[in-house]
């Protein structure tokens, strides 16, 4: 199955930034960052900064939840929702 370009970008950021480039295949698109120890409490804030800078979005405090940000696929879905909300006005999270 072809992966979404956003997922690739997010995966690359996560692997480079949190795994020091050591992607041993443990991070599947639905793997939980928290359960797999990929991300620590500061990591969440780093991820948010990356998303805001790369995608020009504003991540609201209430949106910083595992539901939105705890796997590659969830992050990609969240970004798509945010982009759609800019166009259509619906809310993510």
């Amino acid at each position: 199955m072809a992966t979404h370009p956003t997922e690739n970008e997010v995966r690359q950021f996560v692997v480079e930034n949190f795994l020091y480039g050591q992607d041993d295949g443990a991070i599947q698109r639905d793997s939980s960052f928290v359960d797999n120890g990929v991300i620590d409490s500061t990591g969440v804030l780093e991820l948010v900064a990356f998303l805001e800078k790369t995608y020009g979005i504003k991540v609201e405090d209430g949106e910083i939840t595992p539901d939105n940000l705890d796997s590659i696929s969830r992050v990609a879905r969240y970004i798509e929702q945010k982009r759609a909300s800019r166009v259509g006005g619906s809310c993510a999270g």
């Binding site: 928290v34 620590d40 969440v44 804030l45 939840t65």
Partner: peptide, 16 residues
């Protein structure tokens, strides 16, 4: 400071 800035949902996830 990082822990204090942590949203509730994540704080729970980390210490679950």
């Amino acid at each position: 400071q990082n822990v204090q800035a942590q949203p509730d949902a994540y704080l729970s996830a980390f210490f679950r």
